[in-house]
Design a protein around this nucleic acid. Structure first.
Lengths: 120, 120
DNA sequence: ATCAAGTACTCTATTTTGTCAAGCACTACA
DNA sequence: TGTAGTGCTTGACAAAATAGAGTACTTGAT
C-alpha cells in the first residue's frame, strides 16, 4: 500500500497543484506586486524585494504559460515590457487578501513568540 | 537610490513576512493537512504528499517556534507524537479556503493553457 | 522466537533549485 | 563622453531539498 507523489488515487487535486504553484519562491510576492498594477521587469524585481533577474524571468515565464500573467513588449529597443495580471490572475486577489487579513492579526504575535524562545 | 531586502523604509510589512513563511516549501501543504485534524510525524509526511523527514521536521520546528503548531509527545518509547494547529494556526483556514476557491475555479484552465503551448 | 513493518527522528551524500555577476544593445541625461 | 537606466540571457556557483541509511523500540503475524 505505497503512495507516490504521482499516485492517481490520491491526486488529482487542483488545490494541491495551486499550492505547489504558490509556494514557488517569489510567486506570491510577484502576484501581490502585480495586483497593484502593471510593472516593468526591473521595476517588478525591486517591488518584490530584490529578486534576481534569472529567477524573476523564470517565474514570470511560468505564470505566463499558466495564463495568469500577460506580457506585452511595448518597445524592443529602448527595451520596455509590461507585465500584468490576466483575469484569472486578478482572481488571486482573494488569496492575497486572506494572507493580508491573517498577517495583520497574527504575524506580530508570531514573531514575538519566536523571539521569546518558544523552542525551549 | 538602492534598495536592499533589509531596507527599513520599505520593510516592515507583516504581509511580506507572512508570504515569506507561506512560500517555504511544504508549509501550505502542512497547514492544509493539519486543518483536517492532528497528525503524527510520518503520517503527516504522507498526508502532504511525501515530504522527506529532514525537511518536514525543519518546517514543523519553524511553525512550532512561531506558535502556529503545537507538538505533543504522547510517548517516548513506542514513539508517538501529535502535531496540531494552535488557535493562530487554525486562523490560516481563511487562506487555505481562498486557495481552494481559486483552485477550483481556475486551476484546470491553467493547466489546459499551459498544455496548449501558450509560450509559442 | 523471529521476521516484517511501523513509530520519530537525525546524519551524510547527492540532486535540485535558486542566486550572483557579467554582458548585450540601446537611450536619456548631464 | 560617461554614467545610469531599460530587459533580458548565459554560465558559474551556493543554498536548499532529497534519498537513503541508521537508531531504538513496539506491535502483529507466523
Amino acid at each position: 500500500m505505497e503512495r507516490e507523489p504521482s499516485d492517481t488515487t490520491h491526486s488529482y487535486c487542483p488545490v494541491y497543484d495551486s499550492i505547489e504553484l504558490l509556494q514557488e519562491k517569489w510567486v506570491l510576492h510577484i502576484v501581490r506586486a502585480l495586483l497593484e498594477g502593471p510593472h516593468g521587469f526591473n521595476e517588478l524585481g525591486r517591488a518584490v524585494g530584490g529578486a534576481n533577474t534569472t529567477t524573476l524571468s523564470q517565474r514570470l515565464d511560468h505564470l505566463e504559460r499558466l495564463g495568469l500573467v500577460d506580457k506585452t513588449i511595448e518597445s524592443t529597443m529602448p527595451p520596455k515590457t509590461r507585465y500584468e495580471l490576466t483575469p484569472a490572475g486578478r482572481e488571486l486577489q482573494g488569496i492575497i487578501d486572506a494572507i493580508d487579513a491573517w498577517a495583520r492579526r497574527n504575524m506580530s504575535r508570531c514573531k514575538k513568540h519566536e523571539a521569546s524562545g518558544a523552542a525551549a
